[in-house]
């Protein structure tokens, strides 16, 4: 059980699952980050324990303290070693989840307070309000734009988040291993209805891609998308 990290709270043992939980990943990118998190948690728990034990031990009788061993040995070299390891892992996973190589491109356009998505269909781009269609089992690059304030595109089970910034276009890679419906939300505070800016990602079986049942709409043309700046 991966929730063992929180085993101190038996009540919540089963509670790590959820449609928005980063701890129940549904694709390789979210999975990479989840593994990274469990590794970080294990390391952090050990380090915290070390410090707490050292503090507890100080309540004994006075001892000789080699100053340099504490300040430089523990303080500098030990922590630098741990941090270097962490940084290396961070860079490695960071490069893995970057949008390298070819991928299907879809668009996510945010405004107060809704999302418009589009994906390439058989007869041109398909547009949908609040629902993003993607094929399962292959990487998808979401091109994220906004026409008013800053929003943030986030589907916790499929990958990290990326801001939608007016005047810019950002690219985020996501991937769903299996077909299904995944929940997403706006993560950056964007005004009154920020909380209701939810959406869905439907991952289709690759055999059924592009899905035929969806209505075909004219190419996406909100003003800010048309003048979307250099990628």
């Amino acid at each position: 059980m991966k929730c063992a990290g929180f085993a101190t709270v038996p009540l919540l043992l089963a509670g790590c699952k959820g449609p928005l939980s980063t701890l129940s990943p549904a694709g390789p990118i979210a999975q990479d980050i989840a593994w990274l998190w469990w590794a970080l948690l294990a390391g952090a728990a050990l380090l915290a324990l070390l410090v707490f034990v050292l503090v507890a031990l100080s309540f004994g009788r006075p001892r000789e303290v080699p100053e340099k061993r504490w300040t430089f040995g523990l303080g500098v070299w030990f922590s630098l070693a741990v941090l270097t390891l962490t940084l290396a892992a961070a860079l490695w996973v960071g490069e893995r989840i970057l949008p390298h190589g070819p991928a299907l491109e879809v668009h996510a356009h945010a405004r107060q307070w809704s999302w418009t998505f589009s994906h390439p269909g058989a007869q041109g781009p398909n547009e949908a309000e609040g629902v993003l269609h993607i094929p399962a089992g292959q990487p998808v690059d979401v091109l994220i734009t906004s026409s008013d304030v800053i929003h943030s595109f986030w589907v916790p089970q499929l990958g990290g988040k990326m801001d939608a910034i007016p005047g810019r276009q950002n690219r985020l890679r996501i991937e769903a291993t299996r077909p299904g419906t995944y929940e997403g939300l706006c993560a950056e505070f964007c005004g009154l209805e920020h909380a209701s800016m939810r959406f869905e990602v439907i991952a289709h079986d690759p055999a059924d891609w592009p899905p035929a049942s969806l209505p075909v709409s004219p190419p996406l043309s909100p003003p800010a998308l048309m003048e979307a700046p250099r990628p």
């Binding site: 050292l54 031990l57 303290v65 504490w70 300040t71 303080g75």
Partner: peptide, 29 residues
Amino acid sequence: SAASMLVAVPTAVQIFAWIGTMWRGRPEL
């Protein structure tokens, strides 16, 4: 990211200096 990691080093130096001080002395609760 690297700089954010690095800033933990001076913090650690101080934490261990304080704990070392408590080891050397006789802390009173």
